[in-house]
Design a protein around this nucleic acid. Structure first.
Length: 817
RNA sequence: GCCGAGGUGGUGGAACUGGUAGACACAAGGGACUUAAAAUCCCUCGGACGCAAGUCUGUACGGGUUCGACUCCCGUCCUCGGUACCA
């Protein structure tokens, strides 16, 4: 038996066999317990990149392991097929995005199959199919009925030369990526979904997500950003209008020395009418991108409007300024400024010579208020009747005062904003609305769905081609029948990726968005796996959408749960040269080359071995070959399979069986606790090394060797399924990657009579001793004293304390006698 | 800026609940086999001193807690991800 390991041949053989037997398709009537393993579906960019490979190898390892544990595993795949890159490619190659997208899907499907991933291909979906997005349109019309979808104005990045809206990604250093022109803010009427109505539930249910990484739960909690404070109404001099603001620090209200409003605030616009300098400043403010990072890191600037607000308690006049960091649409577009107790207000006041009035005194210390803002809590000063009150109490007292005088009230505020779902783009799902001059925005009726996107249009880089597509544009008003026009915006692609996990449970259902029985059978997803970059947006929208679907009556809490993903594994990025591998950075590694050279199993093994799943993986071409060499070494273990010459060696058999079963325990633990596959594979390598140096002697010796090889083949199956199946076949086993059961630990094999532990003196390692497994502290101490290497450190010393950590070490604390 | 994560040999990483730092690999160097090469096998491999035995030192940096700290606490620096129109 000296055949070579021929990866390509083996992989083709097993892939054909799996496809022919349809082994990965799940049956609804299967009696086994259900398990739903989901990987984040890919955007069909055309080529599988290493991030995909990592994601899908992790998912496949989990799915295969669960199958081997006896579960009926749903493991589906599909395509997140709408999006900006298709439009960019369409412009570049002068062919419609649909053509490009479908060609990419075909290409990537072949690549995925080449990796030997155990997907149920009969459930494949693509979000650009009308049969898919029609249900998203349907749900949107239901949300309109409930008032959960609405229209409002919002600012976008506008490129004037191209006459188009720019995505944040297309704004580089404040200018358009293609023409280098400074972007402008433009106010457009857009569609929103009221995710803020669900803020409280989205926040509360985070506590139920025990199977999620704490960091993701924390990030979502911060993103939702619940804060309590007060809404305060400032008067306006010579006007009946008020200037309303929200503050989390009503205790600092007496320290307000100016107000700041957004450039787009009506008050700012009004002031600019008679002030050309201010008008120029507002124009300057409109040339900042809408990215939060840009807004927060730019130089803070402002200008007085000439208007004055009236302080609600003192009645004093407070100047109103325009500030470039205050944004219209976040809250009321106005803030109160307390330079003494807010770092940003402090810097702004210093810059423009505005007064700084300290109203909170640090307890037990004198704070130099001219050096820095004091942003913690303390005792009130300079606050009239509130003097001497602690901050916490003052928050309540001042809010109560405002409430009593009808100048404010207690309020809870969320950082979370409503979800803006309309995009001024072509390659997306049409928003199912018709605009009628008489009836306004009317939802398309259910029997008229889907509103199909014309797929033949060619984007030009300017306005969406839908705006010129007469055939699409015109429709009759569903209410009055008059000629009207369709909504020409399309949905944010996060809409499609927010509910695909539920659609997979009944992907071909033509009569409903999801089938409640199928949801009951599979949902929620038992294990979701995807990139950590989705920790907030995608994962928050999907949680929200799941609740929307539940509340639309598509399934009940009992059937589908209140949360879509029970357990979450956020894999780290695949990096090259220390930065995210991405097409736009041109630092991608093509998995194809690795598969062609070493085979899919080597590619799979390496991506799982090179780093723990949740950590970033720094790509290293040279290290891949090591994984290949490991497979070859395992392969050669077959050569000793039928050896049994020599006389039985009970000690060697005991040692190898200990090694086998300790490995089973370790690898199983990796699957059950946190998916440390890199450590699991290292353990399998150690077992392989042990088997390599082991000499099978006699009948029991050969039997132990076979046991070890079979365990190795079985445990390799989730990682390198083709290799494991071939190895298993040569060992006379059933198809290990699909049928065989996961090996069980023989506890008897793990029992050791003697163990070796380290010995420390003063916490420093000075030697080791071999003692009985259950030796007492005195026995261990005696053994240590009998060891000359250790004894010399005890010479002339008095033992103060002895610490025995069972199975680990002995630490002897001494002092000079 | 804000939120989150991370920093351990030349490299990727391991180290259980605070308990022998560097498992398992990669790279490198040396050797065996070979006419030669590939493949394979064996040895060395954090740093300093030392012929060696060994001793000291070492987990980004500075402090602290502890019999004992990569692990816990305080502070600093750096890198990466997200930051609502990339997906």
């Amino acid at each position: 038996m000296s055949e070579h390991y021929l990866a390509q041949e083996i992989e083709a053989k097993w892939q054909q066999r799996w496809e022919a037997t349809g082994i990965d398709a799940v049956a609804e009537d299967d009696a086994r317990e259900s398990y739903y393993c989901l990987v984040m579906f890919p955007y069909p960019s055309g080529n599988l990149h290493m991030g995909h490979v990592r994601n899908y190898c992790l998912g496949d390892a989990v799915a295969r392991y669960k199958r081997m544990q006896g579960f009926n595993v749903l493991h589906p795949i599909g395509w997140d097929a709408f999006g900006l890159p298709a439009e960019n490619a369409a412009i570049k190659h002068n062919r419609p995005p649909a053509e490009w997208t479908y060609a990419n899907i075909d290409q990537m499907r072949v690549q995925l199959k080449g990796l030997g991933l155990s997907y149920d291909w009969s459930r494949e979906i693509a979000t650009c199919h009308p049969e898919y997005y029609r249900w998203e349109q349907w749900l949107f019309t239901k949300l309109m009925e409930k008032g959960l979808a609405y229209q409002a104005n919002a600012e976008v990045n506008w490129c004037d030369p191209f006459h188009t809206v720019l995505a944040n990604e297309q704004v580089v250093d404040g200018v358009c990526w293609r023409c280098d022109t400074a972007v402008q803010r433009k106010n457009l009427k857009q569609w929103f979904i009221r995710i803020t109505d669900y803020a409280e539930e989205l926040l509360a249910d985070l506590d139920t997500l025990s199977g999620w990484p704490e960091k993701v739960v924390g990030m979502q909690r911060n993103w939702i950003g619940k804060s309590s404070g007060a809404e305060v109404s400032f008067g306006l001099e010579d006007s009946d209008a008020t200037l309303d603001i929200f503050t989390t620090r009503p205790d600092t209200l007496m320290g307000v020395t100016y107000m700041a409003v957004a450039a787009a605030h009506p008050l700012a616009k009004k002031a600019a009418e008679s002030n050309p300098q201010l008008a120029a400043f507002l124009d300057e403010c409109s040339k900042i991108s809408t990215k939060e990072a840009d807004v927060e890191t730019m130089e803070k600037k402002g200008m007085a409007t000439g208007f004055n607000a009236i302080h609600p308690i003192t009645g004093e006049r407070v100047p109103v300024w325009v500030a470039n960091f205050v944004l219209m649409g976040y809250g009321t577009g106005a803030v109160m400024s307390v330079p003494a107790h807010d770092a940003r207000d402090f810097d702004f006041a210093k810059k423009y010579g505005l007064p700084i009035k300290q109203v909170i005194q640090q307890i037990g210390n004198v704070w130099d208020i001219n050096a820095a803002a004091f942003t913690e809590t303390g005792l009130l000063i300079n606050s009239g009747e509130f003097d001497g009150t602690p901050s916490v109490q003052a928050k309540q007292d001042i809010t109560a005062w405002l409430t009593a005088h009808e100048k404010g009230e207690e309020r809870t505020q969320y950082r979370l904003r409503d979800w803006l779902v309309s995009r001024q783009r072509y390659w997306g799902a049409p928003i199912p609305v018709i605009h009628c001059d008489d009836c306004g925005a009317v939802a398309v009726q259910e029997d008229q769905l889907p509103v199909e996107l014309p797929t033949h249009l060619q984007p030009t880089g300017g306005a969406s081609p839908l705006t010129n597509c007469e055939a699409f544009k015109h429709a009759d008003c569903p209410t009055c029948g008059k000629a009207a026009v369709r909504e020409l915006d399309t949905f944010d692609t996060f809409m499609e990726s927010s509910w695909y996990m539920n659609r997979y449970t009944s992907p071909r259902d033509a009569g409903a968005m999801v089938n409640a029985d199928a949801v009951a059978r599979w949902a929620p997803v038992d294990q979701y796996i995807g990139g950590v970059e989705h920790a907030v947006l995608h994962l928050l929208y999907a949680r929200f959408y799941h609740k929307l679907m539940r509340d639309a009556g598509l399934f009940t809490s009992e059937q589908g749960g209140d949360e879509p993903f029970k357990n979450l594994l956020t894999q780290g990025m695949v990096l090259k040269d220390g930065t995210k591998m991405s097409k736009s950075k041109g630092n991608t590694v093509d998995p194809k080359a690795i598969i062609e050279r070493f085979g899919a199993d080597t590619a799979r093994l390496f991506t799982l071995f090179a780093a723990p799943p949740e950590k970033e993986l720094e790509w290293n071409d040279a290290a891949v070959e090591g994984s290949y060499r490991f497979l070859k070494r395992v392969w050669r273990l077959l050569e000793k399979l039928d050896n049994d010459e020599g006389s039985e060696d009970a000690a060697a058999v005991k040692a190898i069986r200990l090694s086998i079963h300790a490995t089973i325990k370790k690898v199983t633990h990796a699957f059950e606790q946190g998916f440390a596959f890199n450590v699991a594979i290292a353990a399998l390598m150690e077992l392989s090394n042990s088997l390599q140096s082991y000499e099978p002697k006699g009948e029991t010796g050969a039997a132990a060797y076979r046991e070890g090889l079979q365990a190795l083949a079985t445990m390799l199956a989730p990682f390198v399924p083709h290799f494991a199946c071939e190895l298993g076949e040569k060992l006379g086993m059933e198809e290990v990657a699909v049928i065989s059961a996961w090996p069980e630990v023989d506890e008897a094999a793990l029992i050791q009579d003697e163990i070796t532990i380290g010995v420390q003196v003063q916490g420093k390692r000075r030697g080791e001793i071999t003692i009985a497994k259950d030796a007492s502290q005195d026995d261990a101490m005696a053994a240590a004293q009998a060891d000359s290497a250790i004894a010399k450190w005890l010479d002339g010393m008095q033992v103060v304390k002895v610490i025995l950590v069972p199975g680990r070490l002995l630490n002897i604390v001494v002092k000079p006698a």
